[in-house]
Design a protein around this nucleic acid. Sequence first.
DNA 1: ACTATCCCCTGACGGC
DNA 2: TGCCGTCAGGGGATAG
Length: 268
Amino acid sequence: MPELPEAETIVKYLRPKIRGKRVLKLWSNTPRLFRQGKNLHKISILIKGKTILDTTRVGKNIVLALNNQYNLYIHLMMTGKLLWNYSKLRERHIRFSMELNGKNTLALHDIRKFGWIRLIKKENFSDARVNKDALSISFEDFKNSLNLRKMKIKNALLNQKIVQGIGNIYSDEILWYAGIEPLRPANSLNSKKIKRIYSAMKKVLKMAIRKGGTSMRDYRKPNGKKGGYYPIRRVYQREGEKCARDGAIIKRIKIGGRSAHFCPYHQT
DNA sequence: ACTATCCCCTGACGGC
DNA sequence: TGCCGTCAGGGGATAG
């Protein structure tokens, strides 16, 4: 499940490879990919012949900046992978590919077709959006946003309108480090507790980036290698195991249709 | 403003 | 062997 650290890992890998490359040809067999009434033809007209200036990330979105007024946004959702110079003979589930000069190809592999690709005008790439990224958001903005919500803190961390980049794995991990129970209403947390969550958020995401992300089922780096966070995770998918902090048995509950894992002893 | 629920899609897995 | 139900989970839509 690509979340912020996985997107960051992909961006770091791709950035030097595709900087300055020109887009020669686009291919796709999945109309749904483009959403909002767009299609491959409409996208092609605006991209073909353009140069990719840079590769960045906002939340879980991967952003290719073109040398015109557009950015190409890619969201991998749950099973999406970007493949660099993949082998056509080996891969199933390729939904989109982009030929670049120098005989290079960037392809989207996505088993469940939940991922999407959109062209977004640079003028709509607002600071407000960038400033909600989990690694950029200020403590004041984070705290003020949580103070306004009575939703459960687990859901608040997953809500991309509040903070961008956290998914189910890292929300569990962040709350474990912060010692906060996932069911707690966001607006019931005092400044001190929000500070703990804020610090844990930065710590967990940076640690996961250093490890190259979490490979559980589908996620791989564009070179096909696995990320290294999964073995060092503290709670996610550890129901019934002992908490690394205090030895209590880790519980798993459902919150809003998603699984949440936590230590019932130190997360309060 | 927020909650609850469904849907999109495919593959893995357990029960029989 | 294979059929069926369930689960994985981000985000959009919709009803309440």
